[in-house]
Design a protein around this nucleic acid. Structure first.
Lengths: 238, 238
DNA sequence: CTCTATTCTCGTACTGCGTACGAGAATAGA
DNA sequence: TCTATTCTCGTACGCAGTACGAGAATAGAG
């Protein structure tokens, strides 16, 4: 266990984790499964947020003792990894790329956005580096196929994938937080009063003006589309 | 305490937190200061990562009892909020906008990137919604001034600020994670072997090709600039 | 059928976290 | 000097992740 300290990205050995078809034909038969445990953890995160996902809660939901989970995942960090890849299984795309790679890429990003809105914990879970599991790789495979007509080299394509994903995650995280604030009237009111007070102090003329002339309210959807188009339209200007 | 559960964004009342010049002229004189405590927490996060920032460690570093911290911040979440705004004090920009808002915006983003690389915990800390403190607001004020020539309305300018910040955070988070992996030879090797194994299974032709024809290696710096330009160059195409 | 090696289950227990509580110390005005 | 106020911090509680190891279940060997 090499605690380097500086970053929390103590990720898991991918070979140990993903390249195990399992073959132990001796000893006690497993009572649970990695699948079931992961699914329970995902359901919990969907329903009550990531911080509700504790080993005790997951074990209880699945009907196991706490320590039994450790037969299926070496630690909680790994369970998170499994959760991320598990939900990536929903990202299956059946139709092949159309040839219009811009349109395809837009569709990919929209798919990712819907996906992350359905699993609001995903942007947070993705904010630390993950090793791609099989489902993630299947999706990546599709995105690479979409990018084929661009003629970009391998590293560049991977980079585009990472950037698009990061962009969508960032946007959705913001979108969720914004929604959570405006859904709580007292919090929204408090924030409004605070910003109004700051704007009234005379030291923030630009902010004061921005708040007094807000313009038409922006829907998250429109904003997402707009920024996404900017990003994608610029993609072949190298 | 309204635990809504679904999101971890239980933020703090901004009026209570930021609009307090402090005036208690009675009672025991404080032995420490919010400043000092926040600075200690920041130093700790810089040196050993965010997960090293515990109330006990911060208290020890500052020479206080653990519970004394709670006279300066109501809880740890708030301390994080203070840390974020504290480091935003480094973002002071003295020169006024040049008038070339694209160039100014690029400079802003580069400043943010350097800032986040100096405080690698910042992207993570920013991934949950924060109420802007005074230093953050001062920087926002500058960015709004930069955006004045665009003629965008208030909401749109704020949106641009949020997007640029999210973009930089996403990029830097990726950059840091990537760097951490490649700085550890065994981990990089394990990941390489894993991906090679996946590429060799025949089910991932695109990935196989991308890995076999990587092209010239991309420096984070160049990639950042490229994507940033794409984002900014698209900004007036509404 | 029994023995043994193997694998999984899970109660107990340890460490470390955030923080509620409240007794005591320091200070300012009456 | 007294009292109200404010800050300090030792103790303690509940919950987190998980190390340990005893016991239960299973598969092949004899």
């Amino acid at each position: 266990m090499s605690r380097d300290g500086r970053s929390g990205a103590e990720s898991v050995d991918p070979e140990q984790l993903w390249l195990r078809p399992a073959e132990p034909r001796r000893g006690r038969r497993p009572s649970f499964s990695r699948e079931a445990i992961t699914a329970a953890a995902v359901a919990l995160a969907d329903a009550e947020g990531l911080e509700a996902v504790t080993m005790r809660r997951v074990a209880a939901d699945v009907g196991a003792g706490v320590m039994s989970l450790y037969s299926y995942a070496p630690d909680k960090e790994t369970l998170l990894e499994l959760m991320v890849d598990h939900v990536c299984g929903e990202l299956t795309v059946t139709d092949p790329p159309s040839g219009d790679w811009r349109a395809d890429l837009r569709a990919v990003a929209r798919l990712q956005r819907a996906h992350m809105l359905r699993h609001p914990w995903l942007p947070v879970a993705l904010s630390t580096r993950r090793v791609p599991g099989p489902n993630t790789l299947a999706f990546l495979e599709h995105v690479l196929a979409v990018l084929r007509p661009t003629g970009l080299d391998g590293a560049a394509k991977l980079e585009v994938f990472a950037q698009i994903t990061a962009f969508v995650a960032g946007h959705v995280a913001h979108e969720i937080a914004q929604g959570a604030v405006s859904r709580s009237p007292d919090r929204a009111a408090a924030e409004g009063r605070y910003l109004a007070a700051v704007a009234a102090d005379g030291c923030h003329p630009e902010l004061a003006e921005a708040l007094s002339a807000p313009g038409r309210p922006l829907t998250p959807d429109a904003t997402f589309t707009r920024f996404l188009n900017r990003l994608i339209d610029g993609l072949d200007t190298d």
